[in-house]
Simulated assay, not measured.
Amino acid sequence: MKFSRIRISSRSQRTFGEIKSHTGLTPNLLARFAICISLKEKSIPNPDEFNEEGSEIAPNVLFGEYEEIYMALILNRLKQDKLDPENYLNEMMRAHLNRGAIALSPRIKDLSDFYELVKEERNV
C-alpha cells in the first residue's frame, strides 16, 4: 500500500501560505503537523467537506523521510475508525490534512505560536 499524490483544498493552501508568510515554515512541515492534530481528534473527518482545488503534494515531499511513520499513523486510525485502508487510505489522509490545516489557522500567527503549540502537544 502506498500514498498517492494528495490535492489539498484551496482553503488549506491559503492557510499554509498565510502561516508560512508569518513563520517561514514550509507548507509540507505545516501539513505534517496538521495531519497529527487531526488524527488526535475523536471524530472522523468528512472528505466531502474539502474541495480539491488547491495544490497537489507528492508523498515524498509531504512526508519526507517519515512516510513510513505517517503510513503507520493513518493505518492505525483507519483501523480505529473501522475503515478499509484499501478504499480509504488516500481519501482519509487528505481529509485529516485539510481538517488539521483548518485547526491550525487560528492558532498560529507567528513562529512563537507554533513553538508553543508544539510544546502543548508534547505534553498531552
Rank of each mutant, 00 (worst) to 15 (best):
D48K: 15
L89K: 11
I44E: 13
R122P: 00
R77A: 10
G54W: 03
A72G: 12
G54L: 05
S38N: 02
I57K: 02
E67N: 05
E56K: 12
K40R: 15
L73T: 05
V118A: 04
N60Y: 13
V61G: 01
R122G: 02
K20S: 05
L104K: 07
N87T: 12
N51H: 11
F114K: 02
I6F: 05
L89T: 06
S12Q: 01
V118K: 08
R99M: 14
H22Q: 13
N87H: 12
Q13T: 10
G24S: 07
A72Q: 14
A34K: 05
E86T: 13
T26N: 06
N51M: 07
L25F: 13
P85K: 12
I8C: 03
N123H: 12
P59K: 09
D84K: 13
G100Q: 03
T15P: 01
E116Y: 14
P106H: 09
N90Y: 03
M1P: 02
G54T: 10
E68K: 14
H22D: 04
R122T: 07
R94A: 15
P59Q: 02
P106A: 08
L97H: 03
L73W: 10
S105D: 15
I19D: 01
I102N: 06
R7S: 10
L78H: 01
A95H: 11
E53I: 05
N46C: 05
E121I: 12
E56V: 15
P45N: 07
I19N: 00
